[in-house]
């Protein structure tokens, strides 16, 4: 079994990948490519109960807690959002609640897609990050 990289290591890895691109257009093309890598969402999550409220794009997010670790899956109807979700899941899925709560994700700001993380009522993506942390908090509280 390969060892799971820490959140910080994965962040560094993602930052490396994006450092290849100078041009914003190339960055978005890469995000569009990443959207295709996102594993399909279990259909039981594709309903209003798991829909994250956001004006612009719809995001469905499900979470499971097994053996002290949180596993996320998600999908969106917007492709850029979907690519960003792929990054978030890569960073935060298969982690302990504590790791998720503590994750700062500064790298996403540094790679120049921070606009998508700005707290705005119209932004399903920012709400998704918040919801992931909420899940982690709830799982941690339940366990404690």
């Amino acid at each position: 079994m390969t060892e799971i990289k820490s959140c910080a290591e994965t962040e560094a890895e993602i930052e490396d990948e994006f450092s290849l691109f100078d041009d914003w257009m190339d960055k978005y093309s890469y995000i569009i490519d990443l959207s295709k890598e996102l594993p399909p969402l279990d259909e039981k999550y594709r309903n209003d109960q798991f829909l994250i409220k956001g004006c612009q794009s719809q995001v469905w997010l499900g979470a499971e807690y097994r053996d002290g670790r949180v596993y996320f899956q998600a999908d969106s109807d917007a492709i850029i959002t979907k690519g960003l979700i792929y990054l978030l899941i890569r960073l935060l899925s298969d982690r302990t609640p504590q790791e998720i709560i503590e994750a700062q994700l500064e790298s996403l700001k540094r790679i120049g897609i921070s606009d998508n993380l700005s707290p705005s009522r119209s932004n399903g993506f920012a709400n998704m990050l918040k919801q992931m942390k909420m899940y982690a908090l709830v799982f941690q509280t339940k366990e404690g």
Binding site: W24, M25, Y28, C55, Q56, S57, D77, A78, I79, I80, T81, D115, N116, S122
Partner: peptide, 22 residues
Amino acid sequence: GVHSSDAATIFDHFGVAVRSGH
């Protein structure tokens, strides 16, 4: 075939401000 939020994100890089969504 293009979600309005995806399009608005690209437009923004052209300096173009439009509204997207409902």
